[in-house]
Amino acid sequence: MIQQHSMPAPEVLPLGQDGVLVRFAKQASFEATAACLAFQRVVEDANLPGLTDVVPSLISVLLQFDPARTDRAAVTAATSALLDGRDWLHDPLPAPKRCWHIPVAFGGQFGPQLTDFATVSGLSEDTIIAEAQETELRVLAIGFAPGQPYLGYLPEGWQVPRQSSLTPRVPAGAIATAIRQMVLFTSASTTGWRQIAETGFRPFLQERSESFLLRQGDAMRLHQVSHDAYRDLLKDNAEGLGGARCEVLS
């Protein structure tokens, strides 16, 4: 649990001319993400007229509507009614149905900011690499880029803010961290998170028969490989698995 103090009521906010955002918390936590998943199901079951999409993030659920068929007042009223009378931040995230095991190379050219992250966090590089592997990560949300997972949560020592300036480019496969989370980049990107490792696992490849591999709630484990072994994994990686293995959990 990241926030121990009692949480305020969910907020109902505008996002664009066709969106209502229900925000359960300003900071990410397993409880907030569990609330998002639970509320998404409640909204979908309610079949509200004029809704075009109901999407969960780590801390919020976005209800997109067609302003030609309904309006903000109607969506907001229906949303408030569905929120009423339930303690949304009470439940833990449901147990994962499957776990992805991902080979990764830490540090050096594959994790150019590992040293910087060690300095900022006060953790040793060995501790970072050990804790990254010991933590059962969960896919908290898919977003930013196609198929891209937000992963968390790492131990307390990983509570480091995003950089104030953006890193101009991290490559596809970069694993970067901030605020006790990791992101596994599915395409080259600008980011404010610090890159500590790299993987050949591509959660999104448009041309692959299964374009998207991850689902919100999946578990993930990182396994360190040497830089040489990692380079070998990249030699034959057309399918973008990078040596990853998916374990089905009972």
């Binding site: 996002l15 955002l21 300003k26 993030s57 801390i59 976005l62 803010p161 605020i179």
Partner: peptide, 8 residues
């Protein structure tokens, strides 16, 4: 410390 949230 803001949690990542939807962008339009």
């Amino acid at each position: 410390s803001l949690g990542s949230d939807f962008i339009t």
